[in-house]
Design a protein around this nucleic acid. Structure first.
Lengths: 336, 336
DNA sequence: CTGAAAGCGCTAACAC
DNA sequence: GTGTTAGCGCTTTCAG
């Protein structure tokens, strides 16, 4: 496709609007922001609005927040690809809820090697709030970086409260714990744990593994970590390995990986759950689609509206009421 | 969890760095941006760098781009939840590829009723580029809004070139066409078309339906649109309806919806593909996991690196070489 | 009720 | 080589 740039369109600023409406820039600002300290006549008001509309004026967010000293940007660090449907639906709801409260939500795919580097990248944008939902995405130093950039509304999920951060109490290792307790109660003792090799997922996978190991130790079960990239051949190879190792159960990291492995086991003539039980996590619809239907671990976050109110309060008052913990429960189905 | 705001951290600006290093703000700027017009002594350079590091200085992106008249922000309007794995992997690759080229990629979940409103929301951020990959997310007027905001690097996918926009040639209706041709060649004549009711998806679903209708008309097949929300009960109800309507094939919108329906058909004793053939789209791994394995339509986008180069060229030179079209092909499996 | 004026933090001519 | 200076587009006192 041939493509060449059209003529550069004129850049419209509030000065242009002011000139067109025959008022000062200050008046334009008052009208457009509905500032109540200044009373603007209805006639002036509509003239300004008409001029802005006519010229196709769009305010410059950067200039606005630079001057105002606050921004309406909320940063949600998350790699889309590392996002199951459960979380992405929640993100969607958060965007809606925060949008209704006047914020601009933006997802920032996080390619940083460590929390401080990541925090620096976020801090450049001077967001009003950062919602760091991935485990271990924050350290004290990272929080400090954000604070120095003026972002004091920081929210995260962690096993215990982090200083200076609004912490949603929740522990990924509980997912492992719940899954392991379920498997052990079903008599399984040789548990494999699928570890996805995709970047960004080990932060979730490691604690899940740890949770399983804790339960296993108590009940004298063995735990074997099984690295696996998301793909059919890898799953097939791993299915063979599972049989060779004589495992009687696999925790599949989440439903997607678990379903992949379960199908591969099936292809290799391994009966699920007869020979090997498989448990996933996230309780995606996928778990109900596949056969055998997949046992899963569901987690629930507080409702988006509740969290949005919290974030809003954090931004405006610097403090917020505690929220209920993140909460995990097993959903037994055919695969275990 | 109780939470209260800690002490407000001091805001560090380049002035602070300059003072700490005993130089002017200009010198700080030169050092930090590696501006080559000014020669800075190695000694000054390292003193500035040390001071910046010491103070934990993070540049203010808004101030920077306000002054420089250009931003390194690239906006990718996309609702995470409306994103299949195929697309989200591509997004991930784009973030990496553009990140390597010095850009900050940000996803903007698009809750706007129309393209112009959406464009206005994007334009507020004055991005260097907008990658509007969802069909029909752009109109001439929306492009105009972006151009007035200084965003001339706009990329989209559309059936034919849009003026002022770098258009990746590709037509969602081809997905429907490919699917319908496949079904017709297998002797199917009573085709149902699953239409997801989730917001944001009709832009994809409508053209796919249109593509199917075109093929059906030619071959004397009937087409029945079947609205369905993403969920187990809805799928179940629809399975019953499919049987009642005497359909012999269903195009499932994409693999996720198709798999859901296929499982529901199975639950209701309908043989797939014996009685009803099911075809998905996107060729997700899911299609290989489910039984019967799902026939799908795969599409391929040009490689992320290629598109990143195009975007870079669009930003810096205002023009770019044509790219290969988006490309669709059927992937026959057991379900049809 | 409206306008003049002072910056927010930063960059890039242009001086020295 | 390094510093001075003039803004980028906007908000917000403070006068009138």
């Amino acid at each position: 496709m041939a493509f060449s740039k059209g003529p550069q369109a004129a850049r419209i600023t509030s000065t242009d609007v002011a000139r067109a409406a025959g008022v000062s820039r200050a008046t334009v600002s008052f009208v457009l922001n509905g500032t109540s300290t200044a009373r603007i006549s209805e006639e002036t008001r509509s003239r300004v609005l008409a001029a802005a509309d006519e010229l196709g004026y769009v305010p410059h967010a950067a200039a606005r927040s630079l001057r105002a000293g606050r921004s309406d940007l909320i940063l949600l660090p998350a790699a889309v690809s590392a996002t199951g449907r459960l979380f992405s639906d929640w993100v969607d709801d958060m965007e809606t809820a925060l949008g209704e409260r006047g914020y601009t939500v933006v997802l920032h795919g996080n390619r940083s090697p460590d929390p401080v580097t990541a925090a620096r990248a976020w801090a450049q944008l001077r967001p009003a709030a950062v919602l760091a939902m991935a485990p271990n995405s924050l350290t004290a130093e990272a929080v400090q970086v954000l604070a120095q950039a003026g972002t004091t509304a920081v929210l995260t999920i962690a096993p215990e409260p982090m200083p200076g951060v609004f912490t949603l109490l929740g522990d990924q290792s509980d997912i492992g714990r719940v899954a392991a307790e379920h498997l052990v109660s079903r008599g399984r003792r040789r548990i494999g744990v699928l570890m996805p090799t995709e970047r960004g997922l080990s932060a979730f996978a490691e604690p899940r593994l740890a949770g399983i190991q804790r339960v296993a130790t108590v009940h004298g079960a063995t735990v074997t970590p099984l690295p696996m990239p998301y793909g059919g051949e890898a799953a097939s190879a791993l299915a063979v390995l599972c049989r060779e190792l004589g495992l009687d159960a696999v925790f599949g990291y989440n439903d997607e990986y678990a379903a992949l492995l379960s199908a591969a086991l099936n292809d290799h003539g391994v009966d699920v759950p007869g020979q090997i039980a498989v448990v996933g996590a996230d309780d995606l619809l996928l778990a109900q689609i596949v056969r055998p239907q997949l046992t899963s671990v569901r987690y629930r976050l507080p409702a988006a509206d509740l969290i949005a109110d919290t974030v809003d309060s954090l931004i405006n008052r610097g403090t917020a009421e505690p929220l209920p913990s993140v909460w995990f429960e097993p959903v037994p189905r055919q695969s275990s």
